[in-house]
């Protein structure tokens, strides 16, 4: 109850001009009209909200859903989430900017995260990243990023393609990798983590290059 009252108090504070025009100039209000929310997005966010004792817990899944729809957490996407969740866009923008997987700038449709953390780097990840980055070039379909440890050092060096882990990779794999993405085939089907056995020690055997970590230009 008191929360709602406070929200009302707050809403009124914004509507009414507290500050007498005679003594103070206020900055013009922007975007007072709540944005239209696509019904399927609203529905998905509300489904997440219903799962938690405190609906705010749905912020990450909600932002992820908005990102799937809009391609990134654009101001528009954030305002839509804010409208459904009853939070301020500022709050959600702050949350979004905290997490690596929530994009606050427009990006390509396909995420290619190349792990460049220590274990992968020890096995040539920096060179791999450069190869992917160069091969993808300025193709707007790709979001190629060097990424922190993705938790698959057993297949180092590796990459996550829209969530599918593939490795160990060499620069030679890169053309096929991008081609698979472009054509919609399963990405490097023979190199997917999902096919790998844990208890087969030989499955882990691989040759790897003898070279130090190479720092890639940021």
């Amino acid at each position: 109850m008191s929360d709602r009252v406070h929200q009302q108090i707050h809403a009124r504070a914004r509507e009414e001009s507290l500050l007498n025009a005679r003594v103070c100039v206020r900055t013009p209000k922007t975007n007072a009209i709540p944005p239209e929310v696509p019904p399927e997005l609203r529905e998905e966010i509300e489904r997440h909200m219903a799962l938690y004792p405190d609906t705010r817990s749905a912020a990450l899944p909600a932002l992820a859903a908005a990102q799937r729809l809009h391609g990134w957490c654009s101001p528009e996407a954030i305002e839509q989430v804010a409208t459904v969740m009853g939070l301020t866009p500022a709050y959600l923008a702050a949350v979004a900017s905290f997490y690596d997987m929530l994009e606050t700038e427009s990006i390509g449709r396909h995420d290619v995260y190349v792990c460049t953390n220590i274990s992968c780097s020890l096995r040539g990840a920096d060179r791999l990243y450069e190869a992917v980055r160069d091969a993808a070039g300025d193709d707007p379909d790709f979001n190629v990023r060097p990424f922190e440890c993705l938790g698959a050092c057993d297949i180092a060096p590796m990459a996550s393609v829209d969530g599918v882990y593939v490795g160990p990779l060499t620069p030679d794999d890169v053309p096929r990798l991008l081609d698979d993405i472009r054509t919609g085939r399963p990405v490097l089907a023979d190199k997917q983590l999902a096919t790998r056995l844990v208890a087969d020690p030989n499955a882990n055997s691989q040759a790897f290059p003898a070279h130090p970590i190479e720092e890639s230009a940021p």
């Binding site: 799962l51 938690y52 405190d54 705010r56 817990s57 749905a58 912020a59 990450l60 899944p61 932002l63 992820a64 702050a94 949350v95 905290f98 997490y99 690596d100 997987m101 929530l102 922190e148």
Partner: peptide, 27 residues
């Protein structure tokens, strides 16, 4: 039991950062 997906932040492995993140905040 609910599977809650994070969004890419190492610090959310720290237990209280995880709790804040699970509450829908910055971790």
């Amino acid at each position: 039991l609910i599977v809650h997906r994070g969004a890419g932040a190492y610090i959310c492995g720290e237990e209280t950062g995880l709790l804040d993140s699970l509450e829908g905040k910055r971790g």
